[in-house]
Design a protein around this nucleic acid. Structure first.
Length: 429
RNA sequence: GCCCAGGUAGUGUAGUGGCCUAUCAUGACGGCCUGUCACGCCGUCGACACGGAUUCGAAUUCCGUCCUGGGCGCCA
């Protein structure tokens, strides 16, 4: 009966493990294998003179990264990793790995991102890389549990859509029988429609597609978005929700991923609350102190500005009260000052993580705003229709899951947070 | 889209006109080794992205192609 490597303790008498051969150190009469499974590493020690002949034969044949089944007695040995080692009575090569390997899983030599992604399955075998995706899984689970505990329901919306949903980004056109279609840039319109459907609190974690030809460490052409929409809520309500969610995720990861964080060398601290809230006007004022190119009211915040503000604030923060002109048409303008809207961005010092707003729920105002952006209300008919038959006031946000993981774990490149990144040049694996 | 930097053994690198039948590490293969833990030691193997040009001579300069990394813009 196979047991997990982490469950083999110095007190264990006998164990059978299955895993990958991480390292081989052959001293002649004595050989050491380090065997790895998802849970950890164990030293397998083969005294060639005493070991069964079949074990010695298999040990001679085995290559690094082969899958092996090892059964034998466990010895408590202080100098072995984990304080124990396995002395095999049986050693079976379950699946022999070819040689040489496309990259070094034991990380004696590094590999470039391109090489790593080409052989991502091997790359993820590295304990450090595997740790990232374990943590990502825990984070996503924490998001789900947090939102379910707050009464949300999970929805799934189409990724193949008929038209650009909000403008502002390039879409990937696809062939859909005799029609033109696109990959969805965001579930924005659909989650709002579910407010009209009376669902009140919805969320979705799913892929979004942007056909931007960017070439940066913080953009992907296929990303994962956490989208939330809440009825009878305003922008302040959903900002609080977002802040609570970030805290819940950080807390869960610090609690449940101590080993993985240690593997990554990340000393994770739960962000202090409340997150500072600065207005867009304050934000450009802060940026203008250090950024050479002057930012005027109505300009978008560039990378340099984001960086300058992030350094100044030094933690997660919100930028609120954005000019209506530079936010999407569905953001609710302040009635007393329609130049500004109830829109916000939630920032990590390194980059934007989320943006959201209270939405316009009045049909006529929405049509007006769509026109003001130079878009045609006719192409949004299916969406606008839902505003004519009892659309509740609502607010929401979207959060980039990869960016959340990247900033939480201080990863240098967003591709580190995706198993199989889609960027400007990569379509496989 | 604009701009910058690159492409050298399986992997990561050194090498900016002759000293290069190309450095080092890791790896693979063979040998020695019973306590390694980046095991050690000896030996062997393995590469200048592709095409063209300049030159007595090109990994090195130039042009083109393909590929990659990154900055900005746009965007989450």
């Amino acid at each position: 009966m196979r047991i997990a490597i982490q469950d083999v303790t110095p007190e264990t008498d006998y164990a059978e493990i299955i895993g990958w051969v991480h390292e081989i150190r052959d001293l002649g009469g004595l050989a050491f294998f380090i065997v790895r499974d998802r849970t950890g590493l164990i030293q397998v020690t083969i005294p060639k003179k005493k070991a069964p002949e079949a074990v010695v034969e298999a040990a001679k044949e085995v290559s690094r990264e082969s899958v092996v089944r090892v059964a034998g007695t466990v010895k408590a040995i202080e100098k072995a990793p984990g304080g124990r080692e396995l002395v095999p009575e049986e050693l079976e090569i379950v699946s022999l790995a070819a040689s040489p390997l496309p990259l070094d899983v034991a990380e004696k030599v590094s590999a470039e991102m391109d090489t790593r992604i080409d052989s991502r399955f091997l790359d993820v075998r590295k304990p450090r890389v595997g740790a990232i995706f374990f943590i990502r899984s825990v984070a996503v689970r924490a998001i789900n549990e947090f939102l379910f505990s707050r009464g949300f329901i999970n929805i799934t919306t189409p990724k193949v859509v008929a038209a650009a949903t909000e403008g502002g980004t390039e879409l990937f056109p696809i062939a859909y029988f005799e029609k033109e279609a696109f990959l969805n840039q965001s579930p924005q319109l659909y989650k709002q429609m579910m407010m009209a459907a009376g669902c009140e609190k919805v969320f979705e974690i799913g892929p979004i597609f942007r056909a931007e030809e960017h070439n940066t460490v913080r953009h992907l052409n296929e990303a994962t978005s956490l989208d939330v929409e809440v009825s009878f809520a305003d922008h302040n309500d959903v900002m609080q929700l977002l802040e609570d969610l970030i805290i819940a995720v950080y807390r869960r990861v610090t609690e449940d991923c101590a080993d993985q964080l240690a593997t990554l060398g990340v000393d994770l601290t739960v962000p202090a609350t409340p997150f500072p809230r600065i207005s867009y006007a304050e934000a450009i004022e802060i940026a203008n102190r250090t950024v050479p190119e002057k930012i005027s009211f109505g300009d978008d915040l560039g990378t340099a500005a984001e960086k300058a503000i992030g350094e100044y604030i030094g933690q997660h923060y919100f930028i609120v009260d954005w000019p209506t002109a530079i936010k999407p048409y569905y953001a609710m303008p302040y009635p007393e000052n329609p130049e500004l809207s109830k829109a916000f961005d939630m920032m990590h010092p390194r980059m934007e993580l989320s943006s959201g707003a209270q939405r316009i729920h009045q049909h006529d105002l929405l049509v007006e705003q769509i026109r003001a952006k130079g878009l045609s209300p006719e192409s949004f008919e299916f969406y606008l229709k839902t505003f004519e038959y009892g659309m509740p006031p609502h607010a929401g946000w979207g959060l980039g899951v990869e960016r959340l993981i990247m900033t939480m774990l201080n990863l240098p490149n967003i591709r580190e947070a995706v198993l199989f990144p889609r960027d400007r040049h990569r379509l496989t694996p």
